[in-house]
Every structure is written in structure tokens, then in C-alpha cells.
Amino acid sequence: MKKYLCIIALSACLFTACDPKPAVFELETKNFGPNAVVSIQSSENNETLKAENITNGNQTFKINIPKKGYAILKTQDNENKEEFYFYLDKGSYKGILDGAKSNTYPFTAVPTQQGEEFINFYKLKKNMSKNLFDSLAIAEHEFDIATRSNIMEKAKKVDIWREKKHQSELEEIKAFAKKYPTSEATIFLLNRFGRADSETKKYLSIFKSLDQDVQESKMGKKLFAEIMQANQMMAGNKMPNIEGETPDGKKFDLSILKRVNLVICWVSYSGKSRKNNKVLVDLYEKYRHQNVEFIGVSYDKNKDSWEKIIKADKLIWPQYSDLLGAKSPNAKNLSNYNATYFFLVDKNGIVLSNNDLTLDFVDSELSKYLAGRK
């Protein structure tokens, strides 16, 4: 009998432990159009966990087996799209989803401390960015109604305010990190912001302001590695060594560098790279006799294909590859796995320019550094 009761008790414990309690969303939804949709997405793999038509009223929906972790609530109402970060876990989420107040965080009550941290973040964000959002909205409206005579002026104004918005977002994360140094949400927010390669110093400063436990978390260690990776490619640092060989078996040597050098990270099977090659060939002819060198670094795996495109596209500047594809240390160290990617170095391999250096600006950047301007 005792054995039987033990089995019942054990079964009950196991059943309770495995009880898939849902995440329940109880939202007041209003001011959305007839085809508006709300969805919940995992931030880890962008999997859509739930999607519902917005009904404008007291709306309830569930995720029956929520996977604990960072997630995104998204709304789409015709062309209007918004997204908000939160922490998904079992329990009750309450709030207001208002299509007329798209910048207002929807959750007012959440089941976990991690969720409360996002409520605090969005409160801080609202206080810091209200005037900026208003100015951006005005600029975007003026651009929408611009005439042919002033459209370029209005587009430039929108770009300025959008960049100010990006910079404000980083300042908001910085302020949140200072106020809540024990929160891993800062790591998540920095990852989502996605500018470790162009805002490296600011990223490192924010990261160092966090508690040691946060820095040494799994997410923290991964972000720190990305920051350090980006840091070594910042202007003023010496670029990592280029691995691999030329098609005829010569290894990279700094002695080939000239006064200004354009490093081109590319792959032979990319249509974009092939289009870029046409422009680069003309640029090389323009600069090759002005103490400038181009250096190709390919992330190819097939040597025959790589050599064939070099010949077909008439790429006569030095070309290197270790033929390891995405596993190449070049891919990690030089361009953070981006191809195509451009940066400039001097005769000693010191990085001159790499932040947002697109093919459109290569010509002007080469001229600038040849003229001795920084």
C-alpha cells in the first residue's frame, strides 16, 4: 500500500514539475485598423510563437508552452510596424496596446523581475527621447509631402534625425546600464542595437559599467568577444595578419603595402562582389600609380572557382585566400564575417578607416588619405 502511495505521490510531483503553465496576454487593444496583427517572436531564432488579429477591445491570447527568454512583441497595421522587447515566461501579462500611441510600451504588469526591467527601460527611454521622436515624425511627414524641388533637402533632414535617434538609443541603453548594473537586459539591448563594430568604444564603456556577474554571464562573454573583435579593427589599430596565399602560393607580407591600401573582403560566387569588381577595376587604374595598393581577401573554398573569377574580372591586384570559407580566420578577424567589406590601412598595416566604408565612398576616402587629411 505504501509503495502504491509513493508511486502516486511521485507521479503527482512529476506531473506538477512538467505542468506547461501558459503565458497569458490580457491586453486592451485600440485604434488599430481592420487588418492589424499582433505577434510574439522569440529573439533567439526569430520563431513566431503566436500571431493574432487585433480586435480592438479586451483581447486575451496564450502561449501554452512558453520558452523562457527574451522575446519581441510586434504589431503591424498596414504600413505601420512597431516592436517592443520583453521577457517571456509563464504567467500573466497585462497592458494597453494603442495604435495611436505607437511609442508607448504596452505592458504595465508582467510576471517576472526580468520583465519589470524592460518596463523600467521603456520608461527611461520615453523620458529621454520624447522631443526627438516628435522632431523625427515632423521630418518624416515633410519628406512624405516633399516636392521635386525640395525632396533632397527633406531626405537629408530625415537622415540627420534618424541618426540622432540611433545615437539617442545608445545613450538610453547607457543610462539604463548605469541605473540597473545587475540587469542582463543591457547585454540583450546592445546585441539588438547591433553596432558593436561602429560604436566599439561606447559599447566597451557600457559593458564595463555592468556588474561582474553580468559581464561573466554567457551572453556577456559572447558580447565582450565581439567588442574585442571589433576593437582590433578600429582606426589606429594594426590589422590582424591576412592568412592564406595568392593563387601562385605566396603568403601575405606587409612589404607589399603602399602608402594607402584598400583591403577588399569578398567571395567569387557573390553577385554583389562581381558587380563591385567592375567598379574596383576602374578605381585601381585610377590609383595604382599613386602609391595605392588594393588587396583582395577571398572567403572562397573552391580554388578553381576563385582563380577563374580573378581572371574573368581582370583583378590584377594581389589576391589571398586560405580557402576555408566562412571558417577562415580572415572572415572573423577582418570583417566579422561580412563580405563584401572594405577598409583602408597604411604602409604599416594600421587601420585608417573601416566604419561604414561602402564602395560609394572608397574613391573619396582614398583621395582623402592620399592628401593627408584625416
Rank of each mutant, 00 (worst) to 15 (best):
M152Q: 15
F193R: 03
F193P: 01
I145S: 08
K201C: 00
I173D: 06
D144R: 11
L189Q: 07
S183E: 01
R195M: 14
E140I: 11
K126R: 12
H166A: 13
Q167L: 12
L170V: 02
S183A: 10
K178E: 09
R162W: 10
E171Q: 08
F193K: 03
R195D: 14
F176N: 03
K164N: 08
N131F: 02
D134E: 13
N191A: 05
N150M: 04
L132Y: 09
R192V: 09
S129M: 07
K130W: 01
W161T: 09
A139C: 07
F193C: 00
A185E: 05
S135P: 00
D159P: 00
A139H: 08
N131T: 12
K130Y: 12
E142S: 13
M128N: 10
T182C: 00
R195P: 00
M128L: 13
L136R: 08
T147R: 06
E140P: 01
G194H: 09
L190V: 04
E163A: 09
L189I: 04
M128D: 07
K130T: 12
S129G: 08
E153H: 04
E184P: 02
N191V: 06
A139V: 08
G194T: 07
L136P: 06
I173S: 06
N191K: 13
S198L: 05
K179D: 11
N127M: 07
K130N: 11
F143W: 11
L170Y: 02
A177K: 06
N150S: 03
N131A: 13
K154V: 08
I160W: 05
S135L: 12
F143R: 13
F176D: 01
R148W: 10
T200P: 11
D134S: 11
H141S: 13
R148G: 00
A196I: 09
K201E: 13
K179F: 05
D159E: 15
L170H: 04
M152E: 15
I160V: 14
F176M: 02
P181I: 04
A155P: 00
A146K: 02
T147G: 13
S129W: 01
N150I: 10
N150Y: 03
K174Y: 11
E169V: 01
K165A: 13
K156E: 15
N191C: 04
R162K: 14
N131E: 15
S129P: 01
M152V: 14
F176I: 02
A196T: 05
S198K: 07
K201G: 05
E140Q: 13
T186A: 06
I173W: 02
S183Y: 01
I151M: 14
Q167F: 10
E163Y: 08
E142N: 15
R192P: 00
F193S: 01
G194Q: 09
L136K: 08
D197T: 04
A137M: 05
S183Q: 02
S135R: 14
R148C: 00
F188L: 08
A146Q: 05
T200V: 10
N191P: 02
I187Q: 04
F193E: 03
N150L: 03
A185R: 06
K156P: 00
H141F: 14
E142G: 01
K154Y: 08
A137T: 12
D134G: 00
D134A: 12
I173V: 12
I138S: 09
T147Y: 05
K179T: 12
S198P: 01
T200C: 11
E199Q: 15
N127K: 14
S168H: 08
F188T: 10
K165L: 10
R162F: 11
